[in-house]
Nucleic acid binder design. Structure first.
Length: 760
DNA sequence: CTGGCTACTTAGGACAACTGAC
DNA sequence: GTCAGTTGTCCTAAGTAGCCAG
């Protein structure tokens, strides 16, 4: 058999359509038909040479077409107006009584949050027995949503400038310009796509409201100057910061009072917290990664856009005169209170219960129970996919490899994406260029995953997986082509259902994350201080985060703070050595008695010492200046006599004296301590320093290792909270050290239901 | 089947609040 | 008390997945 027997014959275009059409025929095609093999193992010699060609492919780029990105069918090619299932306007008849919270609000002027928890937390759903899970509630009452405040036009002296001239914008357009101005210092505004999308939408809004008010015609983005607007916002921010703490408190209280009615709802007669009761304010869409729509105007949402969901007896939240809700629904099979359609990708946004709500808790519990259940099925699944790596049917091989990748490297399912989203992939949507093969069995993954976070891993894989990946990459496939051209998440999930009802690709991530955590926790000895145990818990957490590729961007100040910390350690070490020298000065015999102890005295070079001296002196000088400035500020305020320059000089002289001492010390090697001391006292000090050095070193290492890893996501979504609870109970670590207040509430079901023998 | 809807889960960054060293 | 650095919360984007009509 030769290459023209490949399923994809050469005359077929590699259009997205052709690609997706091919999938349909996939099932019938066997490996035998496709590849010249007897046992389902394809001829690795041929394939490997092809592979390495691609690999060493530094040669190929010149020859090949630049990798084109072939995507599957484009959704919404023509953004056709959806069959407008027009939101029925239901006339609000019922008197819009305000929802009274179960207990009288006046009882407590200052709300005690902990107490608040007590009375609604009485219901322990995890101890109740619920049968039907398609019905989420029988009664649901709430007060609707908070709309963002109306736009307040800028004062007349703050304007957009066009080509150097002030522009009078109609409020609606000014608002949009303001959205951009506010972001002037962010990275978004440096992105040309963002600029263009913003500008297009801005012009459109401007046109809608009839153009500028002073006849200036805005045409070119580059002539727009948003600085005056930006400065105004900065000023406002500054002023807000300057408010006295009293005023700030006042504002906080007012906000609190306004929000109070929306924070809670009543579900089956119980008080529950609402999550995002604030409608998202208008602004510029900030898509992540290379999002084609980033910068577009996210339009304001009005009551007419909002669908409310509550029970049919529930009072309908009132609206200002003349305004109406888009629709009132009574759908008790869903867990949302309100929703609206956003204009960027035409999808829905939901107002839902808070993380600590019973319904969300229940879903969470079920999620982890499902993942735990996978424990009992994982062995046959692994056995199966290992076996099927050699299946004669292409589809089967792709399935097996996909499940292997999802299981072993915790890849996401990887659904199809449309052309107007950022180009990110998961397992099923991996393309040729995302996987590089390095014989014999090394694979390099390099692609952008969810949120355009880079997934880069060089890993060893099963031999047969390697071979299969080589097959999936075989010509005529080239960059831009799907690796798993027979697969999508729904095919995969359907396959997985056979092993276990409800099993889907994402369950593997939960399972492997929690399993890994359990294994890591098992390795931690029950000894040492709480701080030490905590450190080990975090290390375990980190293992999971790395498995799931949970990253965060390093802070701007990271390098600096690492530098600072390591400088501090060096300084401590220097101090220690200095003390050891002092010991030797006191008693020369010590060297013979404890040669090991004094070994490190030689470790420090003159240059090191000089650098440390310099740092200390610089710091001291700076301190003097700062203190001088601060003291005088204070004195000015209190109408006291100011410190004179001579006072500052006096301080600085002292520092200079110290500098000279250091210089002397460096020259002679003789350490002069401030106080007379004994060998014993110095030993004690050294011991303390050692401890401090160790602690600082651990902290530094932790900081380094955590700088790119985000622990939160796995803690919140992947690690069964019961693992953490058991850990705390068993190891005597207070749960507050691991779960913040809101996490303790979210995971209340776990905190209260588990004994210390529980295992994932 | 497939594609489009719909609902729900997972995600990182912005920003506010807190904390500990000085 | 002040400041810098850290931690916790909020915000909303971006995934997964089930369902249903054609």
């Amino acid at each position: 058999m030769t290459s023209d027997l490949h399923e994809r014959s050469s005359d077929e275009e590699d259009t997205p359509l052709a690609q997706s059409g091919k999938r349909r025929r996939a099932a019938q095609v066997t490996i035998d038909e496709e590849y010249d093999t007897e046992d389902g193992e394809y001829n690795s010699d041929i394939a490997l040479s092809q592979v390495s060609e691609n690999l060493n492919g530094k040669t190929t780029p010149e020859v090949e077409e630049p990798p084109k990105r072939v995507r599957r069918k484009v959704k919404n090619e023509t953004p056709k107006k959806k069959t407008t299932r027009k939101l029925k306007k239901i006339k609000v008849e019922s008197s819009p009584k305000k929802l009274t919270t179960p207990k009288s609000e006046e009882d407590k002027s200052v709300k005690e949050e902990e107490d608040e928890q007590e009375d609604d937390g009485g219901y322990k759903w995890w101890e109740a027995e619920k049968e039907d899970d398609t019905i989420k509630w029988t009664t649901l009452k709430h007060n609707g949503v908070i709309f963002p405040p109306a736009y307040e036009p800028l004062p007349s002296h703050v304007k957009l400038y066009y080509d150097g001239k002030p522009v009078d914008l109609p409020p609606k357009a000014e608002e949009v310009a303001g959205f951009y101005a506010a972001l002037l210092q962010s990275d978004h505004t440096k992105n040309p796509v963002f600029q263009r999308n913003f500008f297009d939408d801005f012009l459109e809004v401007l046109k809608e409201c009839g153009g500028t008010l002073n006849g200036i015609e805005i045409k070119v983005f580059s002539k727009c100057d948003f600085n005056k607007m930006f400065e105004y916002y900065e000023l406002q921010k500054e002023q807000r910061k300057q408010l006295s703490s009293q005023e700030k408190k006042q504002l906080r209280l007012e906000k609190e009072k306004l929000e109070e009615p929306y924070k809670f709802c009543e579900l089956d007669g119980r008080k529950e917290q609402v999550g995002n009761f604030r409608i998202e304010p208008p602004g510029l869409f900030r898509g992540r990664g290379a999002h084609p729509k980033t910068g577009k105007l996210k339009r304001r949402v009005y009551p007419e856009d909002v669908v409310l969901n509550l029970d049919n007896e529930a009072p309908i939240p009132p609206l200002p005169e003349g305004q109406n809700w888009g629709e009132i629904r009574h759908d008790n099979t869903v867990q949302w209170l309100a929703m609206w359609r956003e204009n960027i990708s035409n999808s829905f946004k939901y107002v839902r219960f808070a993380a600590n709500s019973s319904l969300n808790g229940l879903s969470d519990f079920k999620k982890f129970e499902k993942a735990r259940q996978l424990k009992d099925h994982i062995d046959p699944i692994r056995k199966d996919y290992t076996k099927n790596l050699k299946s004669k049917i292409m589809l089967e091989r792709q399935k097996s490899v996909a499940i292997y990748l999802i299981d072993v490297f915790a890849l996401r399912a990887g659904g199809e994406k449309s052309e107007d989203e950022a180009d990110t992939v998961g397992c099923c949507s991996l393309r040729y260029e995302h996987v590089t093969l390095k014989p014999p069995t090394t694979v390099i993954f390099d692609f952008l995953g969810k949120d355009s976070i880079r997934f880069y891993q060089e890993v060893e894989v099963d031999k047969q997986v390697f071979k299969n990946l080589a097959i999936f990459k075989r010509p005529p496939k080239q960059p831009g082509h799907q690796l798993f051209d027979r697969l999508d998440p729904s095919i995969l999930n359907k396959h997985l259902q056979h092993y276990m009802p409800g099993l889907t690709a994402k369950v593997f991530r939960t399972y492997n994350a929690s399993k890994t955590m359990q294994d890591q926790l098992d390795l931690i000895p029950n000894e040492g201080t709480v701080a030490e145990k905590l450190l080990k818990y975090n290390a375990a957490n980190r293992t999971v985060a790395i498995l799931c590729n949970h990253q965060r961007s390093v802070t701007k100040t990271h390098a600096q703070s690492v530098q600072k910390a390591s400088d501090k350690i060096r300084e401590l070490e220097w101090q220690k050595i200095r003390l050891k020298k002092a010991i030797l000065q006191l008693d020369k015999k010590q060297m013979k008695e404890r040669p090991k102890f004094f070994e490190e005295v030689e470790d420090i070079t003159k240059e090191d010492e000089m650098a440390i001296h310099k740092r200390i002196i610089e710091r001291e000088v700076e301190k003097c200046h700062k203190k001088f400035a601060r003291d005088n500020d204070k004195r000015k305020f209190e109408n006291m006599e100011l410190l004179k320059e001579s006072d500052l000089k006096e301080w600085l002289d002292k520092v200079e004296e110290q500098r000279l001492n250091f210089e002397q010390e460096l020259k002679t090697g003789v350490v002069e301590l401030k106080m007379a001391s004994t060998v014993e006292k110095l030993d004690k000090q050294i011991e303390k320093l050692d401890q401090r050095i160790q602690n600082s070193a651990i902290q530094l290492r932790d900081k380094e290792e955590n700088s790119q890893v985000s622990l939160g996501t796995s803690k919140i979504n992947y690690i069964d909270p019961r693992l953490s609870v058991v850990f705390c109970k068993k190891y005597g670590v207070p749960i507050e050290k691991i779960f913040t207040k809101s996490l303790r509430e979210k995971f209340k079901w776990a905190v209260e239901s588990v004994d210390e023998n529980w295992r994932f």
